[in-house]
Design a protein around this nucleic acid. Structure first.
Lengths: 195, 195
DNA sequence: GCCCATCCCAAACGGGTGTTTGGGCGCGTG
DNA sequence: CACGCGCCCAAACACCCGTTTGGGATGGGC
């Protein structure tokens, strides 16, 4: 049931991701979590310092995954349109590869202590900035329509790729890449039929 | 601080919407809620039957608001493109007019008892269907590109209007109508510059 | 053989949870 | 005036929470 190759601490984090994503952070008790791993509530404290450490670790890992997938794109020399498409591919890929952690990340970060909470809002701003720059650089290059508002455009793109954690199911008919490409096609070309 | 024109029960529901949206359902205690209204925890039970009733009521009211805003559009005779735009306007309007309830609705419905839980998933399906039909009817009419996948297109539109609860702030520079129109413009015409 | 470290259990600790109970105050109606 | 009813408080109830404690088993290193 649990992978013996992973350290006990890693197993705990995995189970916590599943339970936190299904029931929410506050609705998951340490005894629930311990039961999932076949042990007693108090025994968890040989491996972790407390409940919040679990949430912090899950959220930090998730945000790092997004960073590592997206930020290298900044220095890559790609046509703006292709760069946006690639960013969306990677963004959806991270969500799809980490459905539980991503769900916890988007849903439960409000329950972090103020310090870790601020870290997350900072991350959100940096991702916003990433997409805004991507759009803003594509306008003078002639790739995107000049009347676009970079902020609103970034919100629209982020909506599409973030909201995927709500409905995407791994193993379904569409892989992450196809989802991202479908969205990118619709966003770039528009829904409207040619005149 | 609290509106004396509203019944005590209504005041409780209002405060519950605020607290549930800020801290989450399980992180809000009945004593917290009572304190917000200047009374004792137990006194709430003269007006309500229990904590879950609050969540059920908030969620049901929110879903009804969406229904009443969107479903009448089904029978209105509008060009598909205009109908989609109007649906997005109304959808964002509901979110903007009920930021707290909408946040609770999108965030906390997983904590409902199985019966109410099923009601929400049913609602979600019906909204999905609404947008899919809207798209599917616009294709043969020549309004939308024929290669569109209705399901994915509906997801994209829903992402845009639903995710607004995450970032929209009433009183900001953009009203709900402008937000919806900006999104609709980008979605319909596409981000790409004309060739 | 001994020891130490690791991992776990069983039990307890203090405090918070949703909810119930019994009583009291004040106001409008018979 | 007396009654009842709506509204509230203070206290209690049973339970669950995250976490700590002390001790027991196991297994590898000296």
């Amino acid at each position: 049931m649990t992978d013996p190759l992973k350290s006990r601490r890693e197993q705990i984090l995995d189970s916590a991701s599943v339970l936190f994503s299904e029931r929410g952070y506050h609705a998951t008790s340490m005894r629930d979590l311990a039961g999932e791993l076949g042990m007693q509530g108090g025994s968890l404290y040989a491996h972790i310092s407390g409940k919040e450490e679990l949430l912090v670790e899950i959220v930090n890992r998730a945000s790092r995954q997004f960073d590592e997938a997206l930020f290298p794109l900044r220095d890559m020399n790609l046509p703006p349109e292709e760069k946006l498409r690639e960013a969306m591919r990677r963004h959806v890929q991270v969500v799809a590869d980490n459905m539980e952690s991503a769900t916890v990340f988007f849903h439960e970060w409000k329950h972090l202590s103020p310090a870790a909470y601020g870290h997350v809002t900072g991350w959100r701003d940096s991702i916003d900035a990433f997409y805004r720059e991507l759009i803003a650089q594509g306008v003078p290059a002639g790739a995107f329509r000049p009347e676009l508002d970079a902020k609103m455009t970034a919100y629209l793109v982020l909506s599409a790729v973030n909201w995927a954690y709500t409905w995407y199911r791994p193993g379904g008919s569409l892989g992450p890449r196809e989802v991202a490409d479908t969205f990118a096609d619709m966003l770039l070309r528009g829904l409207r039929a040619e005149a």
